[in-house]
Amino acid sequence: MLTLPRDLLDRMIAHCLAGYPDEACGLLGGDPATGEATSLHPTRNAAASAKLYTVDPRDHLRADRAVEASGYSIIGVFHSHTHTDPYPSPTDVDQAPDPEWHYVIVSLRDTAPMTRSYRIRNGRIDEEPITVTDR
């Protein structure tokens, strides 16, 4: 399960909308033991594409340092699908870097953005609930 404070969810969706028509992406910091996100790190999409994303490597380094300095870890990545369901594509599965991460997808296909989270391990996709909290 991913626990996501509402302000982080709102910022995540805002970053995805701001990146449209390209895919947008970013990283989640938090506690890997509980799956609670504590920080959101919007990053540039180095692929600058409507169909692909690449977390800008320098933005990733900056986010990693900030998260580790606060005693947490990067626990996941989010990105937008601009015209498709919020479900991991074969590309997402092939390139999933860490089996312990949470993979969040924000679909902008419909007027109301749809956000879903998944675990991806050994090519297997499992959707997980997102618990949105007020903090």
Partner: peptide
Amino acid sequence: ISILPAVAGGAD
């Protein structure tokens, strides 16, 4: 020196 995973994917 820092090593990080390359993070990429997309709808394609």
